[in-house]
Simulated scan of single mutants.
Amino acid sequence: MKNQWIEFILGYVTVKVSGKGLERFLNVLTRNGLYIWNVKRHGTETITFKMRLKDAKNIRLFARNSECKISFLRRSGSPFLVKRLLKNSGFLAGAGIFLFIILFLSNMIWGIDIKGAKPATEYKIRKELDKMGVKIGKLQFLTENVDGIQKRLTDSISDLTWVGVELKGTTFHLQVVEKNEPKKPETYSPQNLIAKKKAIIVKYYIEEGQKVFTDHEYVEKGQLLVSGNIGQEEGTPKLVAARGKIFGETWYKSHVELPLKTNFRVYNGNEKRKYNINIWGLDIPVWGFGKPKFKEYETEVITHKIHFLKWELPISFETKTLREREELTRTYTNQEAEGIALDMARKEIKTHLDEDSTIIDEKILHKALQNGKVILDIHFRIIENIAIGQPISKETNE
């Protein structure tokens, strides 16, 4: 047979023929267009073969004029399989409903476990999870994925430094790290305070140690500012951890280039959603057919794995969001570009400074317009803490 699948779909029967003139009978069948295969001889007067279901209805017409006796041994193919399934439809429906219920319950949220959070913070987390639809009894693939839940919790709850979200079976496990945890008391070893860069001292606050600089003194990098050796000239010196803040005026230079014309892409709010079921890497569309009307777009895919009890199936439910984007051109005047470039320089400088540092003056040293860009060289005067610790060893003291 060239294609047994076609015969299986249409249905076929196994026929037993007994009597005399078997070969002649087979020739009559084939001459009249009846297709037979798998012909087998069983003794001298018996053969079996397979034939199509539609032809089996006509075989008895040809047997009447022969000396052969016909009987049907077996019926095969999809028509008979469907009959058997319909006969046992109650059992199959019950089994299908049972499996569907198990699959349905295996993909619901039955627990939310939060560790590492104080009661007040845990209450905020659960309230935010409710807003997102992450609650007991909700289907997992109707909620955001783990990464989305983690990002929204971190963005919306200021008390969190970090939150880890993991889905195990039907339970979400959240590991929380809160902000403003009690700091361990710092222990200090004997040390001096030295200048971490050259500066002019403006103000200071010394908690412990011996000051060795004068007011408004210009100091070099590495110069001793506060000594941890507070012993008397006569007697045994005492080593302490010099502590305090020495604020000095420091100087920075910044180089900034800003194009007057910039092309960038933005989302305009138009989007199209598609829902697929992925089985072994094959996408089967469920909703949202066809291509979007917009040409330029980006695709975000959220995948929800399907579980059966504790096992993860090779099936997933995917939500694809296609967001339209547009290319815009932003143009600055020379004056606008200069102001924005100056603001960029301030922000860049502040990334290198402590929180208690202050910009007291800024001056543009050089300004140019080249190749469609505004180019600025800026000089900043900063007030910042220039003191850093330098350990004192016994050998150094001796």
Rank of each mutant, 00 (worst) to 15 (best):
V177A: 11
L142H: 05
W5H: 14
I340L: 13
T214K: 11
L99W: 04
L239R: 12
L258P: 03
W37L: 01
T170Y: 00
F104N: 11
L239K: 13
P391D: 13
F72G: 07
T30L: 02
R31A: 14
W287K: 14
I109S: 04
N270F: 12
V256R: 08
D159Y: 11
R330E: 04
Y267S: 07
F308D: 00
G43N: 12
D377H: 10
P182K: 06
I378Y: 01
I306W: 07
Y204I: 03
K54R: 11
K253H: 12
R323A: 15
A120E: 15
E327T: 15
I246L: 07
N334W: 14
T351A: 10
A95L: 15
E348W: 12
E217I: 01
F72D: 06
I200C: 10
I70G: 09
K2C: 07
I206Q: 04
E122H: 04
R74P: 10
K184P: 10
I392A: 07
D361P: 01
R126K: 13
A63I: 10
Q140A: 13
L99K: 00
V301H: 05
E178L: 02
P391Y: 11
L85Q: 01
L160W: 06
R64C: 01
Y188E: 14
K197M: 06
R64H: 08
I194Y: 02
K272Y: 11
A387I: 09
K184L: 07
F294G: 02
T331L: 06
S227M: 06
G96S: 12
L34C: 07
E257H: 09
P237G: 10
I383T: 03
V212D: 10
E67N: 11
R265Q: 14
G96C: 12
E7N: 08
L73G: 03
K203M: 15
E318T: 07
